[in-house]
Simulated assay, not measured.
Amino acid sequence: MESLLPGSFPQRSSSLPSGGNYLGETKFKVGHSPREVQVYRCRARKILERQCVVRFQRHHSGFSVKKSTIYQENNAKFLVHAASGQPFESESGAYNPESTSKSVKNALDAFYRFSRPHTVIGTALSILSVSLLAIEKLSDISPLFFTGVLEAVAAALMMNIYIVGLNQLTDIEIDKVNKPYLPLASGEYSISTGVMIVTSFSIMSFWLGWVVGSWPLFWALFISFVLGTAYSINLPLLRWKRFAFIAAVCILAVRAVIVQLAFYLHMQTHVYGRPPVLSRPLIFATAFMSFFSVVIALFKDIPDIEGDKIFGIRSFTVRLGQNRVSLEQLIHF
C-alpha cells in the first residue's frame, strides 16, 4: 500500500501557493507509526484549509484578508476541538447566564425561608400600625414620619432575623422532623453560614439603632435581643422555650408590650419631639395584642408537636394534646 489517501488531493501546481505540492509529496508508507500517520493527516487538513481560503479569496475578491484569516482561525479551532473530542461551543469556565441566574434565585429562596417571612411581615405591620397611633394631625404625615417608620422597621427586621436565625441554629435536629424545608435543617446552609448571618444582622441592628439615636428604639432592640437569646440558646437556666409558661411570657413581652410601647415612644419622642404620653388608643392596642400574643403562643406549637415530643420541648401542645389545645382556643377565641 503506497498511500492511504490515493488521489484525494491531486497536484495542481497552478492553483496552489508555495509549498502546495507538499500534500502530493506526502506518502504514508507501511513502516510509519500511528503517531506519524496522525501528524501527516493534520498537515493534510491544514493544507486543504489554506487551499479553500485561497480559492475563496479569488472567487470573492470583495472580502478582506482579515475575514479570510478569521475564517481560517475558526476552522483551525474546529479542527482542534474535533481532534480533542470536546464540544466546540463549550469551554471550561465559560460564563453561563442561566446557571448564574438559577444560583442567585436559589440563594434568595434559601434566605427567604431562613428569615421566616411570616414573622417579618407581622413585625413590619405591627410597627407601622403603632406608628400611626402617634399621628395627631394631618401635617404629621410627612417625610419625617416615613423616615422614622423606615428606621424602626429596618432595625427591627434585622433583629427579627437574628432571633429566628438563632432559633434555627439551636433547633436543627428538631427542624429536621418539624420543618425539614428550612435551610439549616435541609443542609443548604452550614452552621458557620447560619452563625455568620445571625451575627451580622444583630450587629447591623444595634448599629442602626445607635446611629438613629432613638433611646426607645435602642431599648426595644436590646430587650428583644435578650429575650430572643434566652428563649432559644441552649445554656444553663436558659432555653426558655422548653417551658410553656415562660415561652408564652417571652412572646407576650415582645409582641404585646415592647413593640407597642417602645415603637410608639420612638415616634412620639424621637420623631415628633413630644412628651411621652400614653394615649387611650395605645392602651387599647396593647391590651388587644396581649390577648392575641397568648393565642399565638398556644397555636404556634401545634404543627411542631412531633419534634417537640422527641426532643423534650414541653410546649402547651405537648402537655395538653394537639386536639385539646385547638378546641379550647377555638372556644375562647
Score class of each variant (00 low, 15 high):
F243V: 12
L237A: 02
A220G: 15
F245Q: 10
F245P: 00
T229K: 01
I251E: 09
A220Q: 13
S224N: 12
S224C: 12
L217Q: 06
R242Q: 15
A247K: 07
L217I: 09
W219V: 05
W219H: 08
P236N: 10
P236S: 08
L238I: 08
G228Y: 02
L235D: 12
R239T: 05
F243H: 14
I246N: 07
F245G: 04
L238T: 11
S224E: 02
L237P: 00
A230V: 06
L237C: 03
P236V: 05
N234K: 14
L221V: 09
I223C: 11
C250Q: 01
C250K: 03
A230P: 02
L252A: 10
A220H: 10
F243N: 10
F218W: 10
A253T: 15
C250M: 06
I251P: 02
P236R: 11
Y231V: 03
S232E: 01
L237F: 10
P216M: 00
R239V: 06
N234H: 10
I233N: 00
L217S: 06
I233M: 03
N234E: 14
C250H: 00
L227S: 09
C250T: 15
P216F: 01
N234P: 00
I251Q: 05
F245S: 10
L227D: 11
L237D: 05
S224Q: 05
Y231G: 01
L235A: 13
Y231R: 00
S224K: 02
L252I: 13
F243P: 00
A230D: 06
R242I: 08
L237S: 08
W240Y: 09
L238V: 11
V226M: 13
F225H: 12
A230E: 07
V226L: 15
I233A: 06
L235Y: 15
F218Q: 08
F245C: 03
L217P: 00
I246R: 08
C250S: 13
L217N: 08
I251R: 06
T229V: 08
F218K: 03
L227W: 08
